[in-house]
Design a binder for these strands. Sequence first.
DNA 1: ACGTCAAATCAAAGCGCTTTGGATGCGTTA
DNA 2: TAACGCATCCAAAGCGCTTTGATTTGACGT
Lengths: 383, 383
Amino acid sequence: MITNALMLHCGLSWRPGFGLLFRRVSRLWSVYASALIGQIMNLKTLSEHLGLSQTTVSRALNGYPEVSEKTRQRVLESARKLNYSPNARAKGLATGKSMAIGHVIARSSRHEMVNPVFGDYTAGAGESYSAAGYDMLISLVDDDNEEQFYRAIKSKGNVDGLIVHGPKMEDTRIDLLSSLGLPFLSHGRASNVTRNYAWLDVNNCRAFQRATEFLLDLGHRRIALLNGLEFLDFAHRRRQGYIKALAGRGLEPEPALMRSDEMTEIYGYRETRAMLEADDPPTAVLCSSIISAIGVRRALSDAGLTMGRDVSVITYDDDLSYMSNGQEVPIFTATRSSVREAGRLSAQMLLDMIRNPGLPLPTHLMEADLIIGQSTGPAPNHT
Amino acid sequence: MITNALMLHCGLSWRPGFGLLFRRVSRLWSVYASALIGQIMNLKTLSEHLGLSQTTVSRALNGYPEVSEKTRQRVLESARKLNYSPNARAKGLATGKSMAIGHVIARSSRHEMVNPVFGDYTAGAGESYSAAGYDMLISLVDDDNEEQFYRAIKSKGNVDGLIVHGPKMEDTRIDLLSSLGLPFLSHGRASNVTRNYAWLDVNNCRAFQRATEFLLDLGHRRIALLNGLEFLDFAHRRRQGYIKALAGRGLEPEPALMRSDEMTEIYGYRETRAMLEADDPPTAVLCSSIISAIGVRRALSDAGLTMGRDVSVITYDDDLSYMSNGQEVPIFTATRSSVREAGRLSAQMLLDMIRNPGLPLPTHLMEADLIIGQSTGPAPNHT
DNA sequence: ACGTCAAATCAAAGCGCTTTGGATGCGTTA
DNA sequence: TAACGCATCCAAAGCGCTTTGATTTGACGT
């Protein structure tokens, strides 16, 4: 462009051999310009600066073989020195990829975002993303137009894939996303969805079955369950495990001992307190989160009871960074599985799906460890 | 890549002219695929569908006045029905905006992400973003090339602004971002930075001064401080407030009573335990986070001490959703300020900056409330 | 000196949107 | 009737990149 204009202006016509001359000149000019204006660094500027075409520079930067090694080095060095990095939007527009993974959170259940479990999970995922050069895009949706929002995400095209958080028993998102053809992985399964989809989950059912059996073995018969919100699939599975274990000993689950809510500290405190004040209180509590377990401990302490002696407690432990379950000796007996590791793995799996679209959809089931801490002991009037 | 693999598999070698063939094939395939899956909905398709030009459709959708109301309605309805929403990358490329705000987190201090305080803050910010149609883009950086990363963010242009998390005493990011001309707002101030920049902060100094004075008034003289990491500016300010209050009563701060680390539960437990075992233990503990305060409570309880009688505790309370400080009656006496509200406000301010680039840089100082709970009482041997 | 071939480079056409600078049609005014 | 203003609409030129199809270059054999 500039070259042509100059030619015109000088009244010259093109002759072979001029190329080099012009390159020299324009190189000088662009150095001048960038010094003067604080030049906007884009591919055009950079290529003019180097006296190369945009094609060659682009290829050099993206590691294509059609560029000589000498040229590539020159380009790379120059790009580094001039702090060039390609405009993500333009690159995305040209390639059709956006190098970002979306995490969509329903606004009503915005508590999800505020849930430390979510923080640890996304931190894990973030590690995988950043290692692969991906960003993480978080958006809050109003619940009334969730479907529309997913469709919009697809056609806005600002993510290459999605993580589905907190799947419900029958989660419409899974069918929707499958039909949209947007790669996604669900953190947790949806029991009533029959089609194939990618997921990573913990064996919640078995974890809670084992925990319950452990308490039964200690002689406990009145075991309370402080579960998460039971329209969420993981909570449903946990309850199944609990019930299965009871059934194994011929015990009926008792509604008064089964509670369900968001797993806050207050929740653990409130429900434990309520159950302790009722007739025939539980001798053991099975808790869905270490945060609620802390509330349980507070309630016991307020009631003058000793955890592990008067009342036993087992909690599910996501191995949260800020709320770790003691140091050498665990505070709580717990079924533990690192949610951070789950995040790391999920992200890895999703990125693989995006890289190799042909392969079958991956699934992964993690097992939780049962670790013994100080919060459990034989049932009080059990000899 | 795929082409090469295919070639290899077929036992063919590359010959000029093959390129065209492959392109034809892949084009055909993609036409077939899109017919199968359903038309790709872009502005072109939509405008053809409506028998209007892309210009008119674009204007109709974006609320420009040059379109008749009748046409606009027709366009809007059609867009809704066909689930059209403009490609974000293309729109961004054309407008120069990306409708996303970046949150950059240094990878080493990845604990930031995992910190429930961060979760609540971003949840608040997220509300503001989503109301304004913005997304939130989170990226982890390796610390060694943080500067380069910020430069890249600028020229990649995938965010319209940034939130700076956890500013240090003299934070180089502030100068860097200012010079890059990328709008940003710092959550917290950086004491040793003299230039103007946008920030939102809590009056940490005054909050801790008031809390300390409250304990002094109750007769406490040996007051421990469990602070956050003191290279972070907020922690430094908190210590200043603490020292100032002590100085007001002619007291010297005692190094053995001043601890500093990441504000985990374990940290609160470990340090409290250590101090209780030492000679002349503190009669009160001032704690930087409710999470650590829970650890403090556990340590006291393990030592057979009653919180609020044997040892008083005041904590800073970010009013975390999952860790709220009791219900009617607060558990802990605390200086409270909602970090979620801080997030909401920060985002609002940053979006305003982006909308009106001319205005002076906004700053906002929030005051923390001192709320009285059950964790404080007169110093033991004080009559 | 000339043709050949591979290696190295380039110009230009997209990607899907916004926006500029007209065009078109039509009722009003001189 | 011509000139004008106004309300609608449009063609085409970007935005900054990748990728296609073509061209230039230089080494080599004859």
